[in-house]
Design a protein around this nucleic acid. Sequence first.
DNA 1: TTTGTAAGTAAGCGTTACTTACCGACGCAA
DNA 2: TTGCGTCGGTAAGTAACGCTTACTTACAAA
Lengths: 197, 197
Amino acid sequence: MKHNGKTNPPGRVKIMKSFSALMKKKDFHSITTAEIAGNAKVTEGLIYKYFKDKKELLYQVLNEYFFEFLVKIEDRVANEKTCVDKLSVVIFSSLESYADNRVFSKILLLEVRNSLEFFNSCAYGRVRKYAGTILGIIEDGIQKKELKPDTDPYLLRKVILGAIEHACLGEIIFGRELDIEQVSSGIVNIVFNGVKA
Amino acid sequence: MKHNGKTNPPGRVKIMKSFSALMKKKDFHSITTAEIAGNAKVTEGLIYKYFKDKKELLYQVLNEYFFEFLVKIEDRVANEKTCVDKLSVVIFSSLESYADNRVFSKILLLEVRNSLEFFNSCAYGRVRKYAGTILGIIEDGIQKKELKPDTDPYLLRKVILGAIEHACLGEIIFGRELDIEQVSSGIVNIVFNGVKA
DNA sequence: TTTGTAAGTAAGCGTTACTTACCGACGCAA
DNA sequence: TTGCGTCGGTAAGTAACGCTTACTTACAAA
């Protein structure tokens, strides 16, 4: 019997919470299904009632976190007027979410990209929404002449996303603290004004 | 019996080549030791004569590729005089290597970072060397007033590395072509001059 | 009362990464 | 030339893993 997704039974919630807790301490591959089930106090078989396989559990957990992430970003962006302010908010909020929810950032930055299956998941759909929002802001900024007219919007998005991710990568991998304010304003300054004297 | 590293027997070479070939088509987790051995025409046990485990094989393959990568980068950087030119060469050469050797970039960007073991490997030592070179160029550029005096060298390095990686990430994941020249000059332009009108 | 279905269990399945014990060939010193 | 250690490689396992199957229980609607 398969789960049709219309309900959210306690077993399913327990499995996701258990997995999420384990992801705080270990990497995906070294977490076993026995561990997930034992920690959730359900049997191993139940995992496969709600999730096609172990990876889908990973994607669904990411999907839930990404939903909250998206809501926060979209909400904050809507409060800003200029392109520069909107992008600054994107950079700050992304860093904040990555710093605050280490499981979220670990999954998104370290665990899902190695498998092509991810790119067919709901979670990846949300990633595309996030990316689409940023692209929209950039294109609007070029049109309104806030950004240089020869800016390649796709490349600028890549640079911004890459800067955000790499700026907190070490901190996420090694579990260190992150000074969001400083890193965020530093990235904003480099990307908007450049570093050449 | 363990391998002491003084020799490089044909079996070891065959295993690494076989694994590398498989990494062209599949991700690390879905490659089995049976597949590696079968493809290399050796027995499965021989893998564990030369490599502690499957992950160490991954790290050693990366280590070999990173060696060539480092040589090329260091060599080209030495031919440039200004900080901007040196960093431009770093950006171009990194993108070029990532585009030319997809197995190398797949391993480095998608497969090793999820496990802390990697950060004790020789390959990671080479990553640090690469990162150290970039930091040196930046610090030199600040000192020689080519770069703005308030630049945070560590953050600038992160932005550059993040930009490089994210700029080719999609192409690496989905096996698409990459216009190195265009992407490279685009990143250089954004990072040095900024995008604000 | 019956029927259908969702939630959950128990036990097993084939594969996987990895281990152990062994083999033959070669170098080399006694 | 015999004995011995080492190196490259093999064969045959083993425990544990991800996942499947068949089953049970609870309960709501007809």
